[in-house]
Nucleic acid binder design. Structure first.
Length: 555
RNA sequence: GUGGGAAUAGCUCAACUGGUAGAGCACCGGACUGUGGCUCCGACGGUUGCGGGUUCGAUUCCCGUUUCCCACCCCA
C-alpha cells in the first residue's frame, strides 16, 4: 500500500471544517486591520533561504527539502575530466565498467535506488590498455536525491569555506570502479562488489538549486523587493499556506505544515518602524485568538535591541558564561559555544540559579530601543491587551531587532508556543533590498487547530445539510435533481439520494448526513406539484407546494 | 540526526508461561414493498506493519527494517 510520506498527513472531514473555520476567521480579522493576502511560490531559489534565514541555522543546513533543478549538463567538460582522471589509473576498470553496467541488472537497480541517472557515450577512445575497438564512457548523475545535494553542500562548504556564492551550480560525477579481481571472476558483478567514487565540480551548464520554503517571511520580503512594493508606502500582507521542513515528526510538528502569517513592511517614512505597528499587530493577534475561542493564552514580550545592542550583549553573555558553564548541563555547554542565547531556553532545574545571574538583553538596550519598547507596552496597556515581560525570550537570527514575542498556550506538549514573531528591521537589506523595517509573525496552524480541538470539534463548526432530497421510484432522479437545483439557488445546503433507494434507506441516509429536513420526491408528489417535507428532529411532516419549498425550509 | 514506547478488522482494543484471531462501535443486508433515530437477527471484514531467525507450531520469543507516538536537538 502506498502511504503518505513520513511526516505528512491527510486532513479529512470533519476536521477540515475546523481548518476552514480558522482560516475564515483569520481572513475576517486581518481584513479589519487592512491586511491583504499575498501568495508566494512554495519553492524558491535555495539562496533566498540561505541568506534570509541564515546559512548556519539548522533549518538551512539540514532541514530543507532541496534539489537541483535542470538536467542540462556540460557534457564535454564531464568527458574531459573523466578521461583526465583515468589517464593515471589502471584502465582495466574501464573494461569492467562497460561489461557490468550493461549486463548487471542488480547494479542498475541499485543505482536507481540511489537516485542516480546513468548516461553512456559510445566510441570514445581511451588510453592504451583498454579493450580494442569500441569502448564506452560512463558517467553517473545524481537526480533529485536530497542526500546527494546535502553531501555536496557539505563538501563545498569544506572546500570553499562558504557556499553562499555560486550556490546553484553544483554537480557530481560518479565514477564506477570495479576491483580487478571481482571483474575477472564474473561478468555479472554483484552491486556489493562495486564501489562508486564521487567528485564534485561545475558540470551543469545551467541549473539551479531550489528549495521548498521552510518559512514564508523570506519569500514575502523577496516579493517586496522584486515588485518594488515600497512605492506603495506601507504594506500589510498576510499569507496562509504549507511550509516544509525535513524534521523528525513529533506532536504538532509535521514535514508539511501550515502557517498563517502577516508582515508589515515598508520604508521608514511610511511609519513601518513605529511602535504603533508592533502594538497593532499584537492587538490583532489577541483579537484573533479571542475570536477563535482560545482562552488562557499568554503573550510574552521582550526587546532584543538593535544589532549593536545585541553584539554587546553577546559579548557580555560569553564572558559571564565562561567561568560557570563547566557546572551546567551538557546541552548548555554546547549552546555556550554554538549559540549562547539558547542557554536561556534551558529547562534543567539545577541550571536555573546560574541562568538567573546572567546578563539580560534589557540591560543593553540603547535609548531608541528602550523608548520603542516602552511605547509598545504603553499602547498595549491602553487598548487592554494583557502581556508579560520575558527577558529570556530571544531570537537567534541576526536580522531580528527590537520587539520579539510569543503567544503560548498550555496543553500543547513540549511545544507550548502557538505563534511567534518579531521585528526584523534588517532583513530587506540582507536580501539586497532597500531599508524596509518590518514586523511579522507566524502561527503554526497545525497546533492552533490542535488546541481548538480540545474545545470545539470539527463537528460543531460543520454546516449540516438543510435538506435531503429523497427521490422515490423509477424516473424520479430527474425531478429530484431539478428540485435540488432550485433549492441550492436559494443558498440552501442540499444533499441528494437516488431513486433506487427504498424510502427507509433514504431516511437513514438523511439522518446520517445530519439534514434538518427530508424532502420526498415520488410519483404522487410530482403529480400534485406539492412535496412531502418532514422535519427530522420534530417528526412533523407537511405537504408543501413547489413554489413555497425554499421559504418553508429556510424558516 | 539521538533516545524511549508502540504497530492485531474501517475505528477503539482483547487473546494467560508459545497452541493456529475475538469483542464493541462503524459499514452492508433483513425483520419493515412510501417514513429515520430504538430494538432484534444476519453478513462482511485479517498474510497480526514488513523481512528474517528459533520452534513440531510464533500475534506472543530474538534480530533487522519501516511507520507512528513521546521527548531531545532546533525553531515561526
Amino acid at each position: 500500500m502506498i502511504k503518505a510520506v513520513r511526516g505528512t498527513r491527510d486532513l479529512l472531514p470533519p476536521e477540515t471544517a475546523l481548518w476552514n473555520f480558522v482560516e475564515s476567521a483569520v481572513r475576517d480579522v486581518f481584513r479589519a486591520y487592512n491586511f491583504q493576502e499575498i501568495r508566494t511560490p512554495i519553492f524558491e531559489p535555495t539562496e533566498l533561504f540561505a541568506r534570509g534565514v541564515g546559512e548556519d541555522t539548522d533549518v538551512v543546513s539540514k532541514e530543507m527539502y532541496t534539489w537541483e533543478d535542470g538536467e542540462r549538463f556540460n557534457d564535454k567538460k564531464i568527458m574531459d575530466e573523466w578521461l583526465r582522471a583515468n589517464e593515471s589509473d589502471d584502465p582495466s576498470h574501464v573494461q569492467a565498467g562497460r561489461v557490468n553496467v550493461q549486463g548487471s541488472p542488480p547494479f542498475l537497480a541499485k543505482l536507481k535506488e540511489l537516485g542516480v541517472q546513468l548516461q553512456v557515450w559510445r566510441g570514445i577512445q581511451v588510453p592504451s590498455g583498454a579493450l580494442a575497438g569500441r569502448v564506452e564512457f560512463v558517467a553517473f548523475r545524481p537526480k533529485v536525491s536530497s542526500d546527494a545535494i546535502t553531501a555536496l553542500i557539505e563538501a563545498r562548504k569544506v572546500a570553499k569555506g562558504q557556499y553562499s556564492q555560486d550556490f546553484g551550480n553544483l554537480a557530481i560525477l560518479l565514477r564506477l570502479v570495479v576491483p580487478d579481481e571481482a571483474a575477472r571472476k564474473s561478468p555479472w558483478v554483484a552491486s556489493k562488489d562495486i564501489e562508486i567514487e564521487g567528485f564534485a565540480g561545475n558540470y551543469f551548464s545551467s541549473s539551479q538549486s531550489l528549495t521548498l520554503r521552510p518559512e514564508n517571511t523570506a519569500g514575502v520580503v523577496r516579493a517586496y523587493i522584486e515588485h518594488k512594493m515600497w512605492d506603495r508606502g506601507l504594506n500589510k500582507l498576510y499569507y496562509i499556506g504549507p511550509q516544509f521542513r525535513r524534521e523528525r515528526p513529533q506532536k504538532g510538528r509535521y514535514r508539511q505544515f501550515y502557517q498563517i502569517g502577516a508582515e508589515v513592511i515598508g520604508p521608514p517614512s511610511a511609519g513601518s518602524e513605529s511602535p504603533a505597528r508592533d502594538a497593532e499587530v499584537l492587538e490583532m493577534l489577541a483579537t484573533l485568538l479571542d475570536r477563535l475561542g482560545i482562552t488562557g493564552w499568554n503573550l510574552e514580550l521582550n526587546s532584543v535591541g538593535c544589532a549593536q545592542d545585541r553584539a554587546a550583549f553577546n559579548e557580555a553573555l560569553r564572558k559571564a558564561l565562561e567561568p560557570v558553564v563547566g557546572t551546567m548541563c551538557v546541552d548548555c555547554q554546547r549552546r555556550a559555544v554554538t549559540n549562547p542565547l539558547r542557554v536561556f531556553d534551558c529547562k534543567v532545574p539545577e541550571d536555573q540559579p546560574i541562568i538567573d545571574t546572567l546578563p539580560r538583553i534589557s540591560q543593553f538596550l540603547d535609548e531608541g530601543c528602550r523608548k520603542h519598547f516602552e511605547a509598545v507596552q504603553q499602547i498595549l496597556t491602553q487598548v487592554g491587551v494583557r502581556f508579560s515581560l520575558n527577558d529570556r525570550l530571544v531570537r537567534g537570527l541576526d536580522y531580528y531587532t527590537r520587539t520579539a514575542f510569543e503567544f503560548t498556550h498550555g496543553a500543547l506538549g513540549a511545544q507550548n508556543a502557538i505563534l511567534g514573531g518579531g521585528r526584523y528591521d534588517g532583513l530587506s537589506e540582507a536580501l539586497g533590498g532597500p531599508a524596509a523595517p518590518g514586523i511579522g509573525f507566524a502561527i503554526g496552524e497545525d497546533r492552533l487547530v490542535m488546541s481548538l480541538q480540545a474545545s470545539a470539534s470539527g463537528e460543531s463548526v460543520l454546516k449540516r445539510p438543510d435538506v435531503y432530497v429523497a427521490a422515490l421510484g423509477a424516473g424520479m432522479n430527474g425531478e429530484a435533481a431539478r428540485l435540488a437545483r432550485e433549492l441550492r439557488r436559494h443558498d440552501l445546503v442540499v444533499d441528494l439520494g437516488d431513486e433506487n433507494f427504498r424510502l427507509k434507506k433514504s431516511f437513514e441516509a438523511a439522518t446520517k448526513a445530519g439534514a434538518k429536513y427530508i424532502l420526498i420526491v415520488g410519483e404522487n408528489e410530482v403529480k400534485a406539484d406539492a412535496f412531502a417535507l418532514k422535519n427530522l428532529a420534530t417528526g412533523e411532516q407537511v405537504s408543501v407546494p413547489r413554489a413555497q419549498l425554499a421559504q418553508k425550509i429556510q424558516e
